[in-house]
């Protein structure tokens, strides 16, 4: 019953504290949109200079991704120096050679790939089909599911942790513990209050990403919502737990580089498959790894519940573990 009262109080506090609500809902939308702008653009044209390349070859080379400019050798080098050309193609003694500008690995890779595919040309064309995803699957589609999970995790961790900490610093926790409330009722009240809020938060963020930013989505929307909410609950229980080890808001912020940032590296934004077992074990003890894995499974590979059930159980396990530890941590403030 007291769990309900604590939950009710938290929801009223949310109603009053519009800024924190905005941080948890609007900030993820804003950052996701910015990421989308950066990652989801159509590739700009590559600037290729051509020196002494015969007309027939140039025709063969022309495509929508290449912007070819014929110029002299010295001018080409000047433009490379300025950085206005990505590469220069030379034709000497019937041999082609390519000089790359080289400071941008993406552009360099793209140009090489482009020339490679032209050389192989149409004759040994392989019929390509996609089992998962599609031809248009961009970088944003790949990282999108992870980012949705990450932003929910990050903002719930911060807001949840700080509000629990403030309960301690403003003295209301002690005041509350001078009433017949159970320690577990406080912790569950927080889970319930934030849980209800994160349902709304997750719904908005997921809907926005999928229908407005059009992240590739092949799976069940309900599963996306379930995983996001579970991630949020794991973040909340972790945030409130570590807040017990912070003296003030500033010390709470210090947990971001220790607890949040490493999780990003292991969440699948960067491939971890080839890494050593012990590195993967580090990833396995992080909630975000499992949440992100499930999110990608659902959104990119149309995973069924059976496919993601283990990730779901693990997330639930994390929440249960952090919650139990938190109830014990409160013993520091009252023995009963």
């Amino acid at each position: 019953m007291n769990t309900f009262h604590v939950m009710k109080r938290i929801l009223i506090q949310f109603k009053r504290d519009k800024r924190s609500v905005a941080l948890m809902v609007v900030a993820p939308l804003l950052v996701l949109s910015l990421m989308w702008m950066v990652l989801d653009h159509d590739d700009s044209k590559l600037e290729l200079g051509a020196v002494d390349v015969p007309e027939t070859m140039l025709e063969q080379l022309s495509s929508d991704t290449l912007d070819i400019e014929t110029l002299s050798s010295s001018k080409a080098e000047g433009k490379l120096e300025e950085g206005t050309l990505d590469a220069v193609l030379y034709f000497e003694n019937k041999e082609m050679s390519l000089l790359l500008e080289g400071s941008n690995p993406n552009a360099a890779g793209a140009i090489q790939k482009e020339l490679q595919s032209l050389r192989e040309d149409q004759q040994n064309m392989v019929d390509v089909e996609y089992y998962h995803g599609s031809e248009d699957l961009g970088l944003f589609d790949y990282v999108g599911p992870v980012l949705i999970g990450f932003f929910v995790f990050f903002f719930v961790f911060i807001v949840g942790g700080v509000s629990f900490l403030r309960e301690r610093t403003q003295g209301t926790l002690e005041r509350l513990l001078a009433t017949p409330i159970r320690r577990s009722e406080i912790v569950f009240g927080y889970l319930a209050g934030f849980g209800l809020f994160t349902i709304v938060q997750s719904l908005i963020i997921a809907l926005f990403s999928i229908y407005i930013l059009e992240v590739f989505m092949d799976g069940n929307f309900l599963y996306v919502l379930i995983v996001t909410i579970l991630l949020a609950l794991a973040a909340l229980s972790l945030g409130t737990l570590v807040s017990a080890f912070a003296k003030n808001e500033f010390q709470m912020i210090q947990f971001i580089p220790i607890i949040i940032v490493p999780q990003v590296f292991f969440s699948g934004l960067f491939p971890t498959e080839g890494l050593g077992t012990w590195v993967q074990i580090i990833g396995d003890i992080m909630p975000l790894t499992h949440g992100a894995e499930a999110m990608r499974g659902i959104m990119l590979r149309d995973a069924s519940f059976a496919d993601i059930q283990w990730e779901i159980y693990i997330l639930l396990g994390f929440t249960a573990l952090f919650t139990t530890l938190n109830i014990f941590a409160l013993k520091k403030h009252r023995r009963l």
């Binding site: 009262h5 403003q170 002690e174």
Partner: peptide, 24 residues
């Protein structure tokens, strides 16, 4: 308590209502 252990965002009534509700 020595410090005013009150929820700043809540009104006077809501603060009292919260503490009262815990006593059933």
């Amino acid at each position: 308590a020595q410090s005013d252990a009150l929820y700043q965002e809540l009104t006077a009534w809501e603060n009292l209502d919260f503490f009262a509700s815990i006593y059933n």
